[in-house]
């Protein structure tokens, strides 16, 4: 069985898990290629205007996958990945969005991932899915093993960054990056922002380096209503972790993203209150790379000036 997984959205978070799961069940995993101009154009042309760029790109990936001779398309219906929290509603409707925008869509595997009440429900959903390809014991085993794999992967990614000698030596600017993983890790969508920052010798810290408990600790201290979007919670937690530790923060958001419209606004407000230099990048299909780079350059310039000023103060003050 060939299972197609689009290289977009939560691919950037859960791929290790999905891959291990399907391979353990004896399936072959087929991933679409990296996002290109074509992926984006196709996605944009197939979907309704108001959707956010990441979902449009997702549909673009699906349409490319179809040509790869797959038996099933894997589009989970993710409602919640943590207790009493939601993720963006677009993930709840993702299988339907795909079906409604793509003609002759292959059969979709859409487990309902709903951990609002308990993570046991997530397990049930995956095991049920697994039983289409293998008997119950093997499916459960595949699930447990994949959870472990995912965990290992996350830990390794965190440690790799923290122990990277280049990261420990203080070079010139440390920048915290806020935003959905599928924006930060997709070079085409983010207009090469991350590549550019690395080339400019900035040290970059992302939300992926923070543990769940670090985030929860910071969010717990906020005098704010409980944030019910997991992504929003991570954003706010990371912001408070970064401030004081970095020279500046860059947030990357999708222009018509519903959750970001509020959470990024809060980030902006906090940046003002805590005097953290903050730069927000809003991406849609009309964003031009040249404009982005110019604005990034200006922001770095500002950070450098600020840092110099601080150093001078320390020296003479």
């Amino acid at each position: 069985m060939r299972i197609g997984i689009p290289r977009a959205l939560y691919y950037y978070r859960y791929f290790p898990f999905w891959q291990s799961f399907f391979e353990d069940l004896g399936c072959q995993v087929v991933v679409s290629d990296k996002t290109t101009r074509n992926t984006m154009d196709v996605g944009v042309s197939l979907t309704v205007d108001g959707l956010c760029l990441p979902v449009k790109v997702y549909v673009g990936h699906v349409s490319e996958l179809i040509d790869k001779d797959i038996d099933y398309l894997f589009v989970p219906r993710i409602i919640s990945t943590a207790k009493r929290e939601y993720i963006c509603p677009k993930f709840m409707g993702l299988p339907d969005i795909v079906k409604n925008s793509i003609k002759n869509c292959p059969p979709i595997l859409a487990p309902v991932v709903d951990g609002r009440v308990s993570s046991l429900n997530i397990m049930k959903a995956y095991v049920k899915l697994g039983m289409r390809f293998a008997p119950l014991p093997q499916a459960s085993f595949a699930y447990l093993k994949s959870v472990k794999k995912q965990h290992q992967y996350e830990t390794a990614a965190r440690e790799k960054n923290l122990n990277n000698p280049k990261n420990i030596v203080f070079d010139y600017l440390t920048i915290g990056i806020l935003g959905h993983e599928y924006l930060i890790n997709d070079d085409y969508i983010n207009m090469g922002t991350m590549r550019w920052l690395k080339a400019a010798n900035c040290r970059i810290v992302t939300m992926e380096e923070l543990t769940e408990s670090t985030i929860n600790r910071h969010v717990g201290k906020l005098k704010l209503k409980r944030m019910f979007w997991t992504s929003g919670k991570r954003l706010l937690g990371a912001f408070h972790h970064f401030r004081g530790r970095v020279d500046g923060i860059i947030s990357i958001a999708a222009f018509s993203c519903g959750t970001d419209s509020l959470t990024m606004d809060l980030v902006e407000r906090y940046s003002c209150r805590y005097h953290v230099p903050h730069f927000q990048l809003s991406l849609d299909e009309h964003t031009g790379e040249a404009g982005v780079i110019t604005r990034l350059e200006a922001f770095l310039e500002l950070l450098i000036r600020r840092k110099k000023l601080e150093a001078d103060h320390a020296a003479y003050g």
């Binding site: 309704v48 108001g50 509603p89 709840m92 409707g93 339907d96 409604n100 018509s256 519903g258 959750t259």
Partner: peptide, 18 residues
């Protein structure tokens, strides 16, 4: 009818077309 960027209604817009 929906406000610009309204998430639930944008999700279903494609469904309504069908």
């Amino acid at each position: 009818i929906l406000p610009f960027t309204c998430m639930p209604e944008i999700i279903v817009q494609g469904a309504l077309l069908r």
